[in-house]
Design a protein around this nucleic acid. Structure first.
Lengths: 205, 205
DNA sequence: CCTGTTTTGTAGTGAACACTATTAAAGTTC
DNA sequence: GAACTTTAATAGTGTTCACTACAAAACAGG
């Protein structure tokens, strides 16, 4: 496939440039991100972009794949890193809010929620990637719950997948609110209640 | 302001055209919607668009305002129409899924979630309108809960605003999943659990 | 250090963009 | 029905869009 013999090496880091492009898409959307915007942020000229990534569309899809498969979603990492399950859910929620309200790169929300989701109807290949990302994340969270149930840290009657989906859906709510510019404090306030909601099994006879 | 004396009347319905433009923005996003797309859907020529709405940006803001203040959000209407509160929440959830997965106009998701939210960072005036819409909706739902508590249909210790925000956030999750092309059936499955979650007060001693 | 290969940077391609000047047509009013 | 006002439709405006020829430059191999 990649028929590279010898010659001048790339003067920029491919992965770094890809990440930079993702932040531009994130901030401006697929249509809103111009090649000029992209190349400026990536620190390269347009011919390099086309030689390296094909075209705008391919670059976009690659950025999605990169995000989905490189633990680019900080809250999920926080969730999986934390040993105590209650603390893990709590950290996830907190990370979602912190991360969504002011990311290091200045963009708000979540790449998948705020950008890819919008383009899903128009940009070919976006919806299917989004769908797989959602299903994968559901499963990933549920797996952790199952693990904790096996360890005895969670009650057996907790419906893992149902609660995993709940946790992810609550995330969408937070991301949306951050995107709308709402005060993070107001969101942090009811985290505790939601953590219990996710982890407490059906509470009646 | 509007200095209209006499002359030829508009050959199209202003509100109808505005609604049509909203659906285009909804489907394609702000940047993705071209004047050509808009005028085609609105059934008018571009000079009429500019004469009537100013420019693309003003048209967009007006479309947002229209959506926010004209009960254009079907699920919310379903929620407020249904007399029984449990059924109201259930209808809301169901409407969100039905409405988000396949709208009459062929667009998926929600205008605010899928379009305005993305443009909030770039299009002037979008974020503030989005924020007000979220806060208003929170309050609107909470008001209904308060009303039901006064009627005795809901327990006094149910935190109205907290549950209102929860209900709206769950909505974002559903909308997102619909946008990702997930199967509606899988979402309809755990509605009942979520309805109880919204309406059941904190369940311990 | 010369040949070959690849990446750069400049400059520019046609097409699509948001937007408008202009003219013809359609109503309203007296 | 003539005068006036306003909208409608055509046909453009300059600008920006995604994308690319082309030529100079930078490295690898011998």
């Amino acid at each position: 496939m990649t028929k590279k013999k010898t010659g001048r090496p790339l003067s920029f880091d491919r992965e770094e440039a890809l990440l930079a492009s993702m932040h531009v898409f994130w901030a401006k959307g697929y249509e809103g991100a111009s090649i000029k915007d992209l190349t400026a942020a990536m620190g390269i000229n347009s011919p390099s972009l086309y030689a390296t990534f094909g075209d705008k569309h391919k670059l976009y899809l690659e950025a999605i794949d990169y995000y989905a498969s490189n633990d680019a979603c900080a809250p999920l990492v926080a969730f999986e890193t934390e040993p105590d399950i209650t603390q893990a859910v709590r950290s996830f929620m907190k990370a979602v809010i912190d991360y969504s309200c002011e990311n290091a790169s200045g963009v708000r929300g979540c790449f998948l929620s705020s950008c890819v989701s919008t383009s899903a109807g128009e940009v070919e290949g976006a919806q299917e990637r989004l769908q797989r990302a959602v299903l994968d994340t559901d499963a990933r969270i549920a797996r952790r719950f199952e693990l904790e149930k096996a360890r005895g840290a969670l009650p057996e009657n907790l419906p893992s997948l149902e609660r995993a989906k709940l946790m992810l859906d609550l995330r969408q709510g937070y991301v949306f609110r951050c995107r709308a510019g709402l005060d993070p404090e107001s969101m942090l306030a009811d985290i505790e209640f939601r953590v219990q909601m996710v982890l407490t099994p059906p509470c009646e006879a």
